[in-house]
Nucleic acid binder design. Structure first.
Lengths: 324, 324
DNA sequence: TGACATATGTCAAACGTTTGACATATAATC
DNA sequence: GATTATATGTCAAACGTTTGACATATGTCA
C-alpha cells in the first residue's frame, strides 16, 4: 500500500504538505490541495490508521463483549451499538464470550492490548474482583458492579407490569421462568418484583430458573415440559425472554392449550421475533436502541473526561399483543 | 498504560530482554523470565498491539460487512465467523451496512485504513466495478463478482429440493417469495431452479419479489396479504427465508388456513428461529457455520499466499419439520 | 519600504514495539 | 586452556504518521 511518502514524492511536494492537506492545518493553496488529492486517488492511498492510532493514543475502536450475537436480544443491541459507534467515527470490535469465563478474560485482555477506547460488557461471567481491577473505560449492560457505570432498563418495573397484566387478566396459577438467579444480574429484579406482586395479590406461582443465562433450546424444552407435567393447571406464564415465551407457546400447542383462552403468556425484551410468531407475543419492551446509544455515549464521555451518570436505568413498556 | 520501557526499568533489565521474553526468542534464564513476568503482572502491562501491528504490517483484524447483524441469518453467520477468527488469533471488526451503498463504501475504506487483514462481504450494494478494483484480500458471501473468491451454499439445489418437496406433497398452486432479482445474488438460483422444476412438472406458480433484500416487516406483511387476496387458492409456499415463512404462517392463521393441511410452507436458511415458531418450519438448511469457517479460512489463505479455491459452494439439506 | 499573510520546505522527535548486529560475561565441556 | 553454549546488554533502524520549530519564498496592503 502507498504511504504518505509515496504520495508526496509523486505529487512533487513534501510529506509535511501532504499531512497538512490530510489534516487541514496550516496554509495550503487550492492548486496544491488538488494535486495532492489527485495523487492520493491515483495511488489509491489510504492513510494508515494504525500509525495514526499509535501517535494519537486513540484507536477509535470500541470493544463489545456479548454472550452471543445470534441471540436476538444481543443481535439487536449490537446493531444499535454499532450504529451509534459509527456515528461518532468509531468501529466495533465484536467478541462472543459464549459465557465462557476463559474466553471472556482473554477477550478483555485482547481489547486492552489493542487499546480500544472502551469496552462494553454484555457478558459477565467473571468474578466482581476482576472487573473492579480493570481500570479501563467500561460500561456494563444489565449488571451493577461496584461503581462501574452501567446501562439497564427498569427490570423491577418490568416484573411489576408483567404481574399486573396477568393478575388483571384473572390468572390463578402462574409460572415464571427466569435466568439463573445465582448470577448477580439486574434482571433478577424482574423476578423479585413479579413474585412480590403475586404474593401480595395472594396468587399461586412457581418460579423456574434456567441453568445458563443464554439460549439452549434443549434445556428450555425440557424445563417447560416438566413444568406442565408438574403443574398442568397453570394458566399464566411470565417468561424472561421472548424466545422462552415462544417455547412455552410451542408446548402449549402440543398440549392442546389455547392461547390466550386457556393460558396467557407474556415474554420480555420485545425483540423483533416477538412479532414474527403467531400469535404475536405480549411482552415487556426493553428500549434496546436507547440502551445501545447510551452505552456508546458513556464510553465517549469517559474517554473525553466528561462527567457521566453511573446508574442509567431506562424505562420499559408493556406491549400487549395476542398471547394475553 | 505501562510500556515495555517501564517494565524493563522496573525489572532492572533491558528492553531487548523484555522483548525476548515476550516473544520467546534468544536465550533467557528462568530467573529473568520470571522476574519479567512478575513485573508485567505488577504493572498490569499489556503489549501495545498497535505498535506491533505497525511493525509487522499485520493487524490481526478481520473486517465483516453485513446488512444487519440483527437479522437471524447474519447473526448466526457472524457468530460463526467470529468463532473461527478467534481460533486463529484474529479479532472481528463488525459493520452493518444497512444496505446503504454510501455506508458500505465508507466502511470498506475504513477497513482499508485500519489495515484489516481481509474483508468478508456479506453485503453487496455497490457496483461490480468498485469491488473489482478493491485490490485487497476479500471474500464474498453468496455473490459472485468476477474472480473474487466467494462462499455460498448450493442455491440451485436448494430451489430444487423445495420444489420437489412441495410437488411430492401434492401442491397444485404454489407461491414463491424471493428477494429482489435485480440484484445479482447467487440466491437468485433458488428461484431459477424452483421455477424450472415447477414448469416441467406443469404446476401453476406465482413469484413475488421483495423490494429490499433484508428484513422489512411491513413490506413482508403487505406483500403476503396481497398475495392471498389475489390468489386465495394457493396451497404451497416457498419462501426465501425462514422469517418470511413465519410471516406467511401468520397470515394463514389469520385466514383460517390450516398448516400443513390446507397449505404447505417451506422456508430457507434453517436459522434457529425456524424451530422456535409453532409449527416448526420445514426449511432448506444452509450450512451457516461451515460458510463462516470457510470465509475465515479463505482470508487466511490469501494473507499467507497459500493457494485457495475461488468457488466454494457448500451443500444444502432439506430439514422437514411441521409446516409441510 | 516595511509589515504581514500566504505557501511551502527541511528537519527531528515522538508513538511502542521488534529485530539484527554486535559486544561482553559467565558457566559448562572437552 | 580453549571452545562453546548460555545470558544479557547496547545501539540503531524500522513501521507510517503527526507536529512543532524554523527557514524561505512570494505576494499584498498600507
Amino acid at each position: 500500500m502507498a504511504t504518505i511518502h509515496d504520495v508526496a514524492e509523486r505529487a512533487g511536494v513534501s510529506v509535511t504538505t501532504v499531512s497538512r492537506v490530510l489534516n487541514n492545518r496550516g496554509y495550503i493553496s487550492e492548486k496544491t490541495r488538488r494535486k495532492v488529492y489527485d495523487t492520493m486517488a491515483e495511488l489509491n492511498y489510504q492513510p494508515n490508521e494504525i500509525a495514526r492510532s499509535l501517535l494519537r493514543k486513540q484507536s477509535n475502536l470500541i470493544g463489545l463483549i456479548v454472550p452471543n450475537v445470534s441471540h436476538p436480544f444481543f443481535g439487536e443491541l449490537t446493531d444499535a451499538i454499532e450504529y451509534y459507534a459509527y456515528q461518532q467515527g468509531c468501529k466495533l470490535l465484536l467478541c462472543n464470550s459464549q459465557l465462557d469465563p476463559l474466553k471472556e478474560r482473554d477477550y478483555i485482555e485482547m481489547m486492552k492490548r489493542h487499546r480500544v477506547d472502551g469496552i462494553i460488557m454484555g457478558s459477565h461471567t467473571l468474578e466482581v474482583e476482576e472487573y473492579r481491577n480493570l481500570n479501563y473505560p467500561i460500561v456494563t449492560i444489565d449488571r451493577r458492579i461496584d461503581s462501574l457505570p452501567y446501562v439497564a432498563s427498569d427490570n423491577y418495573r418490568g416484573g411489576e407490569l408483567a404481574a399486573e397484566l396477568l393478575i388483571g387478566k384473572g390468572c390463578r396459577k402462574i409460572a415464571h421462568i427466569c435466568g439463573n438467579l445465582q448470577l448477580d444480574m439486574l434482571s433478577n429484579l424482574r423476578t423479585a418484583a413479579f413474585e412480590e406482586k403475586l404474593r401480595s395479590a395472594g396468587i399461586e406461582f412457581v418460579t423456574l430458573q434456567t441453568e445458563m443465562n443464554v439460549f439452549d433450546q434443549q434445556e428450555y424444552e425440557q424445563l417447560i415440559a416438566k413444568l406442565f407435567d408438574n403443574h398442568p393447571d397453570i394458566d399464566g406464564v411470565f417468561a424472561t425472554s421472548d424466545i422462552i415465551a415462544s417455547f412455552v407457546m410451542k408446548r402449549c400447542r402440543m398440549l392442546g392449550k389455547a392461547i390466550p383462552q386457556d393460558i396467557r403468556i407474556i415474554g420480555y425484551d420485545d425483540v423483533n421475533a416477538a412479532s414474527w410468531v403467531t400469535p404475536a407475543i405480549t411482552t415487556i419492551k426493553q428500549p434496546i436502541e436507547d440502551m445501545g446509544r447510551l452505552a456508546v455515549e458513556l464510553i465517549r464521555r469517559q474517554m473525553e473526561g466528561e462527567p457521566f451518570e453511573r446508574e442509567n436505568v431506562l424505562p420499559v413498556k408493556l406491549v400487549e399483543r395476542s398471547t394475553t
